[in-house]
Design a protein around this nucleic acid. Structure first.
Lengths: 233, 233, 233, 233
DNA sequence: AATGAATGAGACTTCATTCAT
DNA sequence: CATGAATGAAGTCTCATTCAT
């Protein structure tokens, strides 16, 4: 459905078959940036069509090189996937979390700062792409999912849980289950992106990551209820 | 080594073949149930390995029939996918939502009821499987994603939005952006499932969908903050 | 995935390329003789061009089937090679040797009988092909060479050695080194075939396996020297 | 055929490249030896894995140079093969045979001398490698097999045949068929090597080429039979 | 209706060869 | 002279789909 010809424009008009052996568009670049360029191309395509539906040749073409060249830098198609995750994980630099963890100030301030950072990060398609890819291909690359979990989730989640625990203990948060509360904290952000990326559903006025996060934090802290005297159930 | 011929014997010579055929080794199921059994098998496998990595023969095998028979009921592999979504969508019966929509009672009561239903539904792996599949394969089956959106999301979301709008208007909810607030409402449920399905991350004590939803609704209504006199910021 | 609609119809109009979908030269034979036919084809081609230079498609073509069908019976190209050797080894039936081994009669009679058998066997190209193949590809298929050695050589050589030993002990043979003498016995046959197969060198009048073996046995028993009273060296 | 080396020579003209170039990080071997080193490497590898399974890069690596450099001396991979045979054939110097041919002395002396030479030659792996290679790759390089035949076999065999003929005529050899008798003469040597190289079968105590050849010549002259008064069949 | 043998387009990967540096 | 990055033809293998039985 709707894939149709490769139809890269169709402007070639005349030209016809052999685009001319005369033209020598062979680039001979020094290899150095190559692996990264290849990964960039791969990421684009894996996101666009999924790992399985992307041909190595597609990646090559998008990277502006030939099929064989890919194999100069990556031993297999799978290695592209792995390289992608590895590259993204190295500088994960979620020191933000660590930092946050140490702060002992007003949680609202902390979360607002954290929300701002996360919001900024997630506004970069390149960044969202990685977890999205991991989720999508997790069944075929359980190792990668595990690694992502180890490197990212298992680092971030406990920090947040501890943050909540501390606030509960200090009486600044109501006595909620920290492990479940975390989900109330991060879930909305995930669904916000998901609705956009998968279904093209965006609130009026665009994604507005910042505004959305602010709105969410507000609800998170104050709840939806208008009256302070909530039932104690 | 020694893979060699598959040729199991070759001695069958006479015996078999022709007449008698009294013995019918396989019970023929009612042909009526076939398509459904095929879809069940397909769903299992698509979830397990993804659409691309699942071979039609795998589906046949799991359904207990032969490869060719699949094509008696479905014209192509893609049709399996489509059939899967169609089957799931028909009885989507989210009239629950509609019902909810009409109620004009205390929102907490509404959401609790709704939460209970959703929680029950989502405890059935068969049910979660569909949206998960749609999400995973959305890039390759944009039509299906669109259909899912049309049939499910575009029906549920507006209902919830309206619900919130009404509560805000009536003063029972603080003045939040309804469109964004919905995300705060449903996101946590999504992440709860996602963490489980993709990364195998489950809170201590299991998924506990019910408990989790209750916890979430509590936070949603009352917020995390302990003191009612929130900053006026 | 994503081949697009099947119906690339539209194009039928101007015929063109596609050599006619009308012609239906599809053979639909019952699978049973297939593996053997495939091996026959493979043997031909491996002999003709070597394993590496033979494409699976070549084998298929010669067997009158399609590329994919090969893989219905053999899991890989290497498996063809293995299947080939296995098939040849099963009925190796070198009981001839065993039989010979028991005889305790005049060695000349034994060898003549043996020579006759071997000569007959080796006149069949199908039979010579196997050791030739093993020799040629031994570097790439050490397992197969080892197996051939185990199944054939290690069975035949000791028999011959024992035969010679016994004759020496009984005084009918001069005191030669049996292990080396075997080589004087079988070597000429090997070179006879080798000269033919590799270099196309054939004695005047053709291979004449029988005549050659007779001539060789004569020399083997009587030596080249004309007079019994050889130089006194 | 006969592409062979790209005419090493001619190029020497302008001596070295530029002038200065004081710092030479790597010791440049005399470029003169290069082609030979490449051929040495190629021979090793072709013997080890066969022509097809040897990559040009492997050859380069073993020769301690880069892939591209190979093509400075040989226009193609095939040319390596050809160069190999050519190099081996030039000094084939089987004048030994010629020499032998003239001798008109006692054949036993002749053969012993000849056997000694051949035995010495064949103890050098580098020497045996060539015919082995020719045999192995004869199907893919018929030209080379033909050349080898022309240059080696067609020179050696007739000499031996004539030698036998003369001895038969002079009454020193029994009336055997010279053409076939040659095979009885050289075959054992071939099988001796073959058993070793292909199947790793060696007599107790090692190859012992000398001892083996002596043993063989003994059998050849005197036959296996112990009694001089052989049956006249 | 059901089967599974057969097909062949297409994908991944290798490697001989070229050529800018 | 040398290098090794780059290329792309070609080969192995897979699998959706067809169809005779």
């Amino acid at each position: 459905m709707a894939k149709g010809l490769k139809s890269e424009s169709g402007a070639e008009s005349a030209s016809r078959t052999k685009p001319g052996r005369t033209a020598r568009p062979k680039f001979r670049r020094r290899a150095k940036a190559r692996p990264d360029e290849v990964l960039d191309a791969a990421l684009d395509l894996f996101m666009e069509k999924g790992f399985a539906a992307t041909r190595v040749e597609d990646v090559a073409q998008r990277a502006g090189i030939s099929k064989g060249t890919i194999y100069l830098y990556f031993p297999s198609k799978e290695a592209l996937m792995e390289g992608l995750i590895h590259r993204a994980l190295s500088p994960i630099a979620l020191k933000a979390v660590n930092t946050i963890e140490m702060l002992n100030v007003d949680p609202r301030t902390i979360l607002k700062a954290l929300g701002g950072m996360v919001g900024k990060q997630l506004s970069d398609p390149r960044v969202v792409a990685i977890p999205k890819l991991v989720i999508r291909e997790s069944a075929n690359f359980p190792e990668l999912a595990a690694m992502y979990r180890r490197e990212v989730i298992d680092k971030a989640m406990p920090s947040l849980i501890k943050l909540i625990e501390r606030q509960v203990r200090s009486g600044r948060f109501r006595p909620v289950d920290p492990e479940l509360a975390v989900r109330s904290m991060i879930g909305p952000i995930a669904i916000h992106l998901l609705l956009d990326e998968v279904f093209g559903i965006v609130p009026e006025g665009g994604l507005q990551m910042d505004k959305f996060i602010a709105n969410h934090i507000d609800i998170l802290f104050n709840g939806l209820s208008a009256t302070p005297e909530q039932e104690h159930e």
